[in-house]
């Protein structure tokens, strides 16, 4: 696929996020750059503490950027914004949270939770219009209008997550950051929520940044995958490209960790454990290099040559 022809919706450039100050400071994200194209699903994959959520929250402007910038539709959205631009970005970029139990206000009715954004931006003509909008969206996520007067604790995890989705969808956003939206859910309802996300993408041309640690789910939903390790991007590639030619050893270890639903193969599977000792960066500086076919890998020049040889034969 020709990625260069696509329209870039969100662009992250040399992003650093640092928590704390002075000696206690901790760099959660360092020098991360990637583009998200309009209408695609980009997945951010990595282990716990790798900085996936931090990147998502930096886009939502919950975590301030220490260095670098984030551009949305060509306009800078990190740092200080004018009030008008700020409101615009809030409406267009929405977030779906990881924990459906914690992300809904327990003392508010579903009606208030879903209408919250509508109230904030006055996205309705009159009361009837508002009710019509929230009733439509609640049906769209497979719930019933009679649920509107209920409280979150009366719902199951999957239903709550769908309320969370309804809350962001009703704002008619262009871009959604989905922060591990299914990792807190029961396996039996994960597909339901994923299909719902896909349905909205097809209907409304939404763009997703999908944050996950489970590669098997990521393969199902995403167009491109960014593999991140300790705040650095290790590899970026289209989904099938990444699964066919995982080049970076960390990506290989992630793929080797996917469970195989066959006990005989699963038992004899060789797990690939990643360690930074595999690299020797004492003489050469590593960098994220495009090796062609939209595939980018982090490595020193000699490693890159090796990766190219693996990928394109020779």
């Amino acid at each position: 696929m020709e990625t260069t022809k696509k329209e870039v919706l969100l662009s992250i450039q040399n992003l650093d996020v640092v928590f704390g100050r002075g000696k206690k400071s901790f760099k959660a994200v360092s020098d991360v750059s990637f583009d998200i194209y309009k209408g695609e699903t980009l997945s951010l994959v990595g282990e716990s503490g790798s900085g996936k959520t931090t990147i998502g929250r930096a886009i939502m402007r919950i975590n301030p950027c220490s260095a670098g910038a984030i551009y949305y539709n060509g306009e800078k959205i990190s740092g200080k914004l004018s009030r008008k631009a700020d409101r615009e970005v809030i409406r267009k970029i929405q977030m779906i949270f990881q924990d459906p139990a914690a992300s809904l206000n327990e003392r508010a009715t579903i009606e208030y939770i879903i209408s919250e954004g509508l109230y904030n931006f006055h996205l309705y003509k009159d009361e009837r219009d508002r009710i019509a909008k929230i009733e439509k969206v609640i049906r769209d996520v497979g719930l019933l209008p009679e649920h509107l007067t209920r409280y979150p604790h009366e719902f199951s995890g999957g239903q709550r997550q769908r309320v969370g989705i309804a809350r962001s969808i009703v704002m008619e956003p262009e871009f959604i950051v989905a922060d591990e939206p299914i990792s807190a859910l029961d396996v039996s309802i994960r597909a339901q929520v994923l299909n719902l996300l896909k349905k909205f993408q097809n209907e409304r041309g939404l763009t997703y940044l999908f944050i996950a640690h489970d590669l098997s789910i990521v393969r199902f939903i995403s167009d491109r995958i960014v593999v991140i390790y300790k705040g650095r991007i290790m590899e970026i590639a289209e989904t099938e490209e990444l699964f066919s030619y995982p080049l970076h050893p960390y990506t290989k270890s992630l793929i080797s960790a996917i469970p195989i639903p066959d006990p005989i193969i699963e038992k004899s599977k060789r797990l690939f454990v990643y360690s930074t000792d595999l690299h020797d960066y004492s003489t050469e500086q590593p960098a994220l290099v495009d090796i062609g076919n939209g595939h980018m890998v982090y490595g020193s020049p000699s490693e890159i040559e090796k990766y190219k040889a693996i990928r394109f034969g020779g």
Partner: peptide, 24 residues
């Protein structure tokens, strides 16, 4: 997290206090 969610929806401070904090 739900207060964070309200922030992402652009809820003004007075409503965050009256709807998200005081009822609890």
């Amino acid at each position: 997290e739900y207060s964070l969610a309200s922030r992402c929806l652009g809820t003004p401070v007075n409503r965050v206090i009256s709807k998200n904090i005081l009822p609890f």
